[in-house]
């Protein structure tokens, strides 16, 4: 009887450890296995992504609709090209939607905000969002502001 209790508690320890690993994977690091296969890919080019990272959120009106899957330089245009996975159930983005790099709070992380357009044609897998607005880079704004002051 005492042996049984001992074995059960050891089993419980191992189970708890495994559950902790699963929780670390899903709740803490946001690993989502189903998301890998699902979703369709959309591209957007920016002059400056200013600190956007892979796995950053893609959201519309503050609700997450996908995530950034890759960031690279487009060699022809010499611009940043961001690859996004948009969830499958998001089937209402028109082709003239615009993408913007935003910041959550003053020091928060960067994410992409999508503003839907008015066309009837919808974005499909592999298409590119043409209307983009780069990240606000603090140095540039301050620079512009100073430049304007001087030229006045």
């Amino acid at each position: 009887m005492r042996i049984r209790a001992l074995e059960i508690s050891v089993g419980a320890l191992i189970l708890a450890g495994m559950l902790a690993l699963v929780a670390l994977a899903i709740n803490v690091s946001g690993l989502n296995l189903s998301q890998k296969g699902g979703g369709y890919t959309v591209y957007a080019r920016f002059d400056n992504i200013g600190g956007l990272t892979e796995r950053a959120k893609v959201s519309m009106s503050g609700v997450q609709i996908g995530q950034v899957s890759a960031i690279r330089i487009d060699r022809k245009r010499l611009m940043a090209e961001v690859e996004m996975q948009i969830f499958d159930d998001v089937d209402y983005l028109s082709i003239d939607s615009s993408a913007q790099i935003l910041t959550a709070g003053l020091l928060g992380e960067k994410y992409i905000g999508i503003t839907p357009g008015f066309e009837d044609d919808l974005l499909e897998n592999g298409m590119t969002i043409e209307d983009t607005q780069s990240a606000l880079v603090l140095e540039e704004i301050v620079g512009k502001f100073l430049f304007n002051k001087v030229s006045e």
Binding site: A25, V28, S29, L31, K57, G108
Partner: peptide, 10 residues
Amino acid sequence: WANMQASVSF
């Protein structure tokens, strides 16, 4: 949670 998930990599 969203902030956490965005920054912790498995």
